[in-house]
Amino acid sequence: MLHQGEKAPAFSLPDADMEWFDFGSLRGRQNAVLFFYPRDGTPYCTLEATDFSDHENEFAKHDCVILGVSRDDCLSHADFRDKHGLSIRLLSDEEGEVCRKFGVSQFRERDGHKKLCVIRSTFVVDKEGIVRHALYDVQPKGHAAEVYQLVKGLNGKGRQHAHR
């Protein structure tokens, strides 16, 4: 798991349009909200992604870009984005490498089989690439609003305490 104050891992992933995104390109320019979710199109993942999309402009006012990451492929992301009118950038981590770097992969047992799953998690990363908030196993309802309050505090006075 990553913790507040640690440097966010570097990575490059393709998005829904199969264009590569380099996380390091934000350094010195923008804050980032990086949210990891289990699967495109499931009810809670849709709720979370549409909530972040609906408030993307508010985050942008605080120099913050929102990035969604799952292990779905680019085509699945494109369908998910188009079906629900999502404006946020969705990144494909098919190999699960970035999920491992951020500590959001976990084996869970379902129907007697162990399966590697993505834990719904969100990271607020400042312009210098430092994790300011690491939230694991989050509840999607109201999550975007909670994260927005954390982002508003980034450019404010002093650092906020880590939330779990």
Results as ranks from 00 to 15, higher is better:
residue 1 M to W: 08
residue 31 N to K: 03
residue 17 D to H: 11
residue 8 A to P: 08
residue 79 D to R: 15
residue 164 R to T: 12
residue 157 K to H: 13
residue 101 K to S: 10
residue 45 C to H: 05
residue 141 K to P: 07
residue 42 T to R: 00
residue 141 K to C: 10
residue 43 P to A: 00
residue 105 S to R: 09
residue 89 R to Y: 08
residue 19 E to F: 12
residue 159 R to L: 01
residue 143 H to A: 06
residue 163 H to R: 14
residue 96 G to S: 03
residue 115 K to N: 12
residue 151 V to R: 00
residue 64 C to T: 14
residue 16 A to R: 09
residue 104 V to E: 09
residue 121 S to Q: 06
residue 24 G to V: 15
residue 95 E to K: 14
residue 29 R to H: 13
residue 123 F to G: 00
residue 42 T to W: 07
residue 154 L to T: 01
residue 21 F to P: 00
residue 149 Q to C: 10
residue 14 P to V: 13
residue 72 D to M: 00
residue 98 V to H: 06
residue 62 H to S: 04
residue 163 H to K: 15
residue 6 E to C: 03
residue 29 R to K: 15
residue 148 Y to M: 11
residue 159 R to N: 05
residue 104 V to G: 09
residue 79 D to M: 14
residue 146 E to A: 11
residue 98 V to G: 06
residue 147 V to L: 03
residue 13 L to V: 00
residue 12 S to Y: 05
residue 11 F to K: 02
residue 156 G to H: 01
residue 151 V to M: 02
residue 49 A to L: 07
residue 19 E to D: 07
residue 25 S to E: 09
residue 44 Y to V: 08
residue 6 E to V: 06
residue 134 A to G: 02
residue 81 R to M: 09
residue 42 T to M: 08
residue 122 T to P: 07
residue 96 G to I: 03
residue 162 A to T: 03
residue 131 V to P: 05
residue 104 V to A: 04
residue 70 S to Q: 08
residue 70 S to H: 01
residue 37 Y to K: 00
residue 86 L to C: 00
residue 17 D to R: 10
residue 56 E to R: 13
residue 107 F to P: 09
residue 34 L to E: 07
residue 87 S to G: 10
residue 93 D to F: 04
residue 126 D to N: 15
residue 127 K to G: 05
residue 150 L to E: 10
residue 41 G to A: 01
residue 93 D to P: 00
residue 152 K to E: 11
residue 3 H to M: 12
residue 139 Q to F: 15
residue 72 D to A: 02
residue 130 I to L: 04
residue 93 D to E: 02
residue 80 F to P: 09
